[in-house]
Write a protein that binds this DNA or RNA. Structure first.
Length: 645
RNA sequence: GCUUUUGUAGCUCAGGGGUAGAGCACUUCCUUGGUAAGGAAGAGGUCACGAGUUCAAAUCUCGUCAAAAGCUCCA
């Protein structure tokens, strides 16, 4: 007999060799129907795998992330089975589950596959799924595994097997399809009820751009048709929120071939929005003791040799600009920190002056591969809401906390309610990727983790994601439809102060090295605005939106009254316009709604006589009649609310 | 950068070896209206750019530029 501990800490005894599925059945048939796989002593296993020792067991269903992973991984096998039956001779690479669904990389040889073929594969998958095929695991020797795929002529699988240890190789069989796989899998394909193959793309074998490009098919599956439909609606919604589309519709920004790839042009309304964001942050930073500085867009190559960036990124940067006669070399600045270091060095500093916080909305230029450019989220010229804090080692944690406070304040003002922080530390396996002493790295990583714990933030730790000069904390928000975006960043840096030989005089009258904190709460203005557009679907918070109010006169007769209203609203610093077109009210409302104007004021005979307004709120409808003053005050109040710390 | 796909009016798109089409937007006129599209007329395009094939190219071929999806990359 073995003792099984359940998540609620209860313990029950079972026969040795019992499976998770049998345990589930002993609890309830309903549960057993929903079990996809199980977690035994922290390891996800097949629900049909015999258990032969004591341990803790969690039954996994669609509601568990690992349950979904099992579901999608098995779906990838099902797809491979369908592809093999439709396109015999196809070679298979890897087919894992991903955050939303799964993919399989395949090599079709001479054949190619089109979007229309996906429907065919979907049909086949549904047909195979409905046959309730069981997944069967078999453990085999390396030799046997190699033999199987040599016969099949599948060099990809052979390469994978080559990297595996003998004795730990398993195959999974599902219908006529056999695949090299660690598992775990669903008990059978019958769980898969709804299937959608989403896209076809090229993907390098093993992610290596020097190797062959395989065809990758992405798909997603669900246990219920309804869930698939909901997912497809979500995809549609994401398309509607695309910042590139909304940016054009709302006239926020554009690109021009003649100006160049990845170089955004901010249109008047977009510039207004961005300026408002900048002014907001400037005010917050001023209150937090930051000082503004301004530096040029280029810097001597020597500056970046000193900082170490040239050695690291020089090859993948825009080529240096040279002076015509002397041949001096300058780089478009890819970051602001070296300039700020030189500002720090302008004069000697006493420990009493620290921390010094230098802030600049600094525009930087980075060469990005053309295939990487994407709307405003990935560009070649962008403006960071950058600042560098120079402080004593004993001030690092407090300063770090101060930055976190600013980031959280911004998230509140912009209604990002869901976020987590990611702490990025070194990859212990690749120490050569980083510069600086072991001791400094340890101190920096330690401080960040302590700060996260002390401030009670939700955080995850990612190894190998640190910048080459120091560890960092990034803020990842979830937008209104659940997508994750990386925004602000805070980085601790002991290295640049050394490279630039930054110093301060301590209370012991000796020279000491300050610590630098790099931070950008928005990240970049371009990226932040893009995320804000997708988060709000273009319906910006009232304090931020370019046009807060549109006055809609019922007819020309009321233009004069509309102008009087406009003047009054301007006295309250409300941003309003008048729709003078000779269109009907319905038409003016429709257009204002589409352009996401938060408030519409319908003015006609009634309003003029009683000196009032008919207020309509965007996407909510008629809000009734108000006096001008009443309305202005309510707007003022709404804006003020958002600004409350 | 790589693979695939795409580029026709401001936007969304149809068409396609014999020199251009729709809807919306725009302009003018009519209409003066009450909570998501009033009516009419008009203007607007070297069919991304450059070469080639052809009697003839927006259409076919090649190259360049740009965009989309994915891969690789991201100080």
């Amino acid at each position: 007999m073995i003792n099984i501990t359940f998540p609620d800490q209860s313990v029950r005894q079972f026969e040795n060799g019992i499976t998770a599925m049998e345990i589930a059945k002993s609890i309830s048939e309903g549960l057993a129907r929903n079990v996809l796989s199980a977690k035994f002593n922290g390891l996800v296993i097949d629900s049909f795998k015999p258990i032969d020792s004591d341990g803790t067991l969690q039954l996994l269903t669609w509601n568990d992330p690992e349950g979904k992973a099992t579901f999608w991984h098995s779906s990838a096998h099902l797809m491979a089975e369908a592809i093999e039956s439709l396109y015999p001779g196809t070679k298979f690479g890897i087919g894992p589950d991903i955050e939303n669904g799964f993919y399989y990389d395949i090599d079709l040889g001479e054949k190619s596959i089109t979007l229309e073929d996906l429907t065919k594969i979907e049909q086949k998958m549904l047909e195979l799924a409905s046959q309730n095929q069981s997944f069967v695991r078999s453990e085999i020797s390396k030799e046997e595994a190699l033999k199987t795929f040599t016969q099949k002529g599948d060099e990809y699988k052979l390469e994978l097997i080559d990297g595996l240890e003998d004795g730990k190789i398993s195959f999974y069989h599902c219908g006529a399809f056999t695949d090299l796989c660690r598992g775990p899998h669903l008990p059978n394909t019958g769980h898969i009820k709804a299937i959608k193959l989403l896209s076809i793309a090229g993907a390098y074998w093993r992610g290596d751009e020097k190797r062959k490009q395989l065809t990758r098919i992405y798909g997603i599956t669900f246990p219920k048709k309804k869930e698939l439909d909901e997912y497809l609606v979500l995809l549609e919604e994401a398309k509607k929120r695309d910042h590139r589309k909304i940016g054009r519709e709302l006239e926020l920004f554009t690109f021009s071939q003649r100006v160049g790839q990845g170089l955004p042009l901010w249109l008047p309304k977009g510039a207004q929005l961005r300026e408002r964001l900048e002014n907001y942050l400037k005010r917050v930073q001023k209150d937090a003791g930051y000082e503004s500085v301004i530096t040029p867009h280029i810097g001597s190559k020597e500056l970046y040799v000193t900082s170490g960036h040239y050695a690291k990124y020089g090859q993948d940067s825009f080529r240096p600009i040279t002076t015509p006669y002397e041949g001096e070399e300058f780089l478009l600045k890819p970051m602001n920190c070296p300039h700020h270091c030189e500002i720090y060095k302008f004069k000697p500093h006493s420990y009493k002056e620290l921390p010094i916080r230098l802030a600049e909305f600094g525009t930087v230029y980075r060469y990005e591969q053309s295939g990487e450019l994407h709307g405003l989220t990935r560009v070649r010229g962008f403006t960071q809401d950058d600042a560098h804090i120079f402080c004593r080692p004993d001030q690092v944690k407090d300063e770090f906390k101060g930055v976190i406070k600013i980031v959280l304040q911004i998230f509140r003002a912009l209604e990002f309610k869901n976020f987590i922080t990611q702490i990025s530390i070194r990859d212990p396996k690749n120490p050569e990727k980083y510069i600086g002493s072991e001791e400094n790295w340890q101190r920096a990583e330690q401080s960040i983790i302590e700060v996260a714990q002390e401030t009670g933030l939700d955080y995850i730790i990612e190894e190998g994601e640190a910048a080459f000069y120091g560890p960092k904390m990034d803020f990842m928000v979830r937008d209104a439809i659940g997508r994750k975006w990386q925004l602000g960043t805070i980085q601790v840096d002991y290295n640049l102060p050394e490279r630039f030989e930054l110093e301060y005089i301590g209370d012991d009258n000796q020279k000491h090295r300050p610590v630098m904190i790099h931070r950008a709460p928005f990240g970049s203005m371009e990226r932040f605005v893009a995320v804000l557009i997708e988060h709000t679907a273009g319906k910006f918070p009232l304090w931020l939106t370019p046009e807060q109010v549109r006055i809609l006169p019922i007819s020309e007769k009321y233009h004069e009254y509309a102008e009087k209203v406009l003047t009054e609203l301007k006295n309250y610093e409300i941003r309003a316009t008048i729709d003078y077109r000779s269109e009907k009210a319905g038409r003016k409302i429709r257009d204002a709604e589409i352009q996401r104007v938060p408030y519409m004021l319908v003015v006609g005979e009634k309003e003029e006589e009683s000196l009032t307004l008919s207020v309509r709120k965007q996407s909510e409808g008629d809000k009734g009649v108000m006096s001008i003053e009443e309305f202005a005050k309510s707007i003022d109040e709404e804006v003020r609310q958002a600004m409350v710390q």
